[in-house]
């Protein structure tokens, strides 16, 4: 097995830093999640590319202040769905308007280009803000925060256990991948490979379910009756109120700019 730093597997799956920035860690998690949601709502209603660029700049500034490594952030953004890329590339050619570029029978319009740029800026701004404010939370804390924000408890339980199994399964998956390579398995685009991946997925589930049964038995043994206790967290403080006011003012500013443009 490949040697790993303690806790190293967690940070490859989530963005939770081992030493979070004090200003961010000091804020109430509800405020962090709420701000990311409010930012997403406001940004979704913006259309002006200049204003959207401002929103993206703000999100990037928050990400930098949160200590998200630029390289990591870029890798996450490049992995932007191929889906999106297809839409962005075809949009200038499908929206009618003043021609900016001609490629054989195809003509690209300014209007289409502008819309494509707006979509790209909007999607990236929302994702960067979410990664910076919520993605940097420990998944367990994020789960408890969702419960305090009113998400049904069954869903929160599912979320908390999934967050836990995600790490376990990712380890298991890497171990099995290593075992396959040790037996000279080389993936290719053929039925053998796909069927082997099917066995891999099946094995992943069987092993993890066995583990989940053992865990459930152990939990029952300690008096578990089907519910986890959702831990109380630090109370809302003055700094949280101040921060939420600042966020509201900034968001209102963006809406005003959009109205003026």
């Amino acid at each position: 097995m490949v040697a790993q730093p303690p806790g190293g597997t967690v940070s490859t799956l989530t963005l939770a830093a081992t030493t979070p920035r004090p200003w961010l860690a000091g804020l109430d998690p509800r405020l962090r999640v709420g701000s990311a949601l409010a930012f997403a709502g406001v940004t979704a209603s913006l259309d002006e590319p200049a204003v959207l660029a401002g929103a993206l700049a703000w999100a990037l500034a928050v990400a930098a202040a949160a200590g998200l490594p630029a390289g990591l952030l870029l890798r996450r953004l490049v992995a932007l769905e191929g889906f999106m890329v297809v839409v962005l590339v075809t949009l200038p050619f499908t929206v009618p308007g003043e021609t900016v570029l001609t490629l054989g029978p195809l003509t690209a319009s300014w209007a289409g280009l502008e819309r494509a740029v707006a979509i790209a800026l909007r999607a990236n701004a929302i994702v960067v803000m979410l990664l910076a404010l919520a993605g940097t939370l420990d998944p367990a804390i994020l789960g408890h925060t969702l419960a305090r924000l009113g998400v049904p408890h069954k869903l929160v339980h599912l979320f908390l256990l999934t967050a836990r199994y995600m790490v376990v399964l990712h380890d298991e998956y890497r171990r099995m991948g290593l075992a396959m390579r040790a037996r000279a398995f080389t993936p290719g685009g053929n039925l053998h490979t796909w069927r082997t991946y099917g066995w891999l997925v099946g094995m992943l589930m069987v092993r993890s379910l066995e583990r989940s049964r053992r865990i459930l038995d152990a939990m029952r043994c300690r008096g578990f009756q089907g519910r986890l206790h959702l831990l109380a967290q630090a109370p809302w403080r003055g700094t949280d109120t101040a921060a939420s006011l600042a966020v509201s003012v900034l968001l209102a500013g963006f809406l005003t700019l959009e109205g003026l443009a």
């Binding site: 256990l161 999934t162 836990r164 399964l169 589930m205 379910l209």
Partner: peptide, 8 residues
């Protein structure tokens, strides 16, 4: 069980 599947 659902959590394991979601994680998988």
């Amino acid at each position: 069980q659902a959590a394991v599947l979601a994680a998988a």
